[in-house]
């Protein structure tokens, strides 16, 4: 019986020996470069950042003095206010998008592209075996279907991880070249237990990356399921991509009218809503969203596993 490691090695070979994969990597590198150049070309440096921060503070104070501010939003405003005051006090410039760290934080938006690529790879790893007919030779070895499915899933997630690392490396290099590294010692200001603390910017970037990966993991799992159920690559990629881009908007619309929208997957994928924003539906908390994500994750995987294990291979 083969070890799971050699099965993953096989899946990796099937991912990285295809030209399409290298095309994706090239596209990723290109978009980091394009993002940096566009930022450099369009960014306007504020004349006096202190004056701007001061005017922001005034605005926030005005909002806070109003009566009907929701409690969650009020907390958020108070935190931002404290941080801004801290900036003025300690002479720490806000992180502009045309600095090394600012660019690195905004590079997290490119994770949507990685999500799309991972959906393509994950959906393909099951559906392609069917359309190529290779599934027959794959499943008549002394490896259980569970093991083979698991190796494919792990290989897809490893691909995502690899792309994330590449994104980080590409963005760091591009950011350093285009924006310079003078501000590399800049701290990240966070609000913790009632006080503002200076934290490592690197850790902050990693946190932003991690939060953006929730979508990535959920949509990859979803695409993997569709691919195992319908054995059709285009269908899996199409559905997962549609869900990825239209899902949050539909959920937001529903959330304005109905409370039950909070049980929908996309109401919970954006965890940043608890860190610097307001929850979609009042009363939602981080643990609630984590729980919902876990439930969806288990359902998707269980369905995939159940169907793949039972299916008659007639391709």
């Amino acid at each position: 019986m083969p070890s799971i490691l050699s099965l993953i090695q096989n899946e990796n070979m099937k991912i990285y020996r295809r030209i399409g994969t290298w095309f994706m990597i090239a596209l990723l590198a290109l978009s980091t470069l394009a993002g940096a150049l566009i930022t450099k070309a369009t960014h306007k440096e504020p004349k006096n950042w202190k004056a701007e921060v001061a005017s922001e503070i005034k605005e926030m104070e005005a909002q806070l003095s109003e009566e009907k501010v929701p409690k969650m939003y009020k907390n958020h405003l108070e935190q931002q206010l404290k941080i801004n005051e801290y900036r003025l006090e300690h002479n720490i410039k806000p992180v502009a998008s045309n600095t090394f760290w600012g660019y690195l934080v905004s590079s997290a938006d490119i994770i949507a592209l990685i999500t799309l690529f991972t959906i393509i790879v994950a959906a393909g790893s099951v559906a392609n075996e069917f359309s190529w007919g290779t599934i027959k030779l794959l499943l008549i070895r002394s490896a259980s279907r569970t093991k083979i499915l698991l190796s494919k899933y792990i290989a897809a997630l490893l691909f995502a991880l690899c792309m994330l690392l590449l994104l980080f490396v590409f963005s760091s290099v591009v950011g350093a070249i285009v924006f310079g590294i003078e501000n590399i010692r800049e701290p990240y200001l966070a609000y913790q237990n009632g006080t503002v603390v200076e934290k490592s910017m690197l850790l902050h970037v990693m946190q932003v990356y991690a939060l953006n990966c929730v979508d990535l993991v959920m949509m990859t799992t979803f695409a993997f399921m569709i691919s195992a159920v319908f054995r059709n690559h285009s269908l899996a990629v199409g559905l997962a991509t549609f869900a990825l881009f239209a899902g949050p908007q539909i959920t937001t619309l529903l959330a304005m009218k109905f409370d039950w929208a909070k049980y929908l997957l996309f109401a919970n994928t954006d965890l940043t809503q608890y860190i610097d924003g307001t929850p979609l539906v009042e009363g939602m908390t981080m643990p609630f969203s984590m729980m919902m994500l876990l439930i969806y994750f288990v359902i998707f995987n269980a369905l995939t596993w159940f169907i793949f294990r039972k299916r008659d291979i007639a391709a």
């Binding site: 019986m1 083969p2 050699s6 099965l7 090695q9 096989n10 070979m13 099937k14 030779l137 794959l138 070895r141 002394s142 490896a143």
Partner: peptide, 9 residues
């Protein structure tokens, strides 16, 4: 062949 070889000890 390497692919299938890896699937059997």
């Amino acid at each position: 062949l390497l692919h299938y070889a890896r699937m059997t000890k």
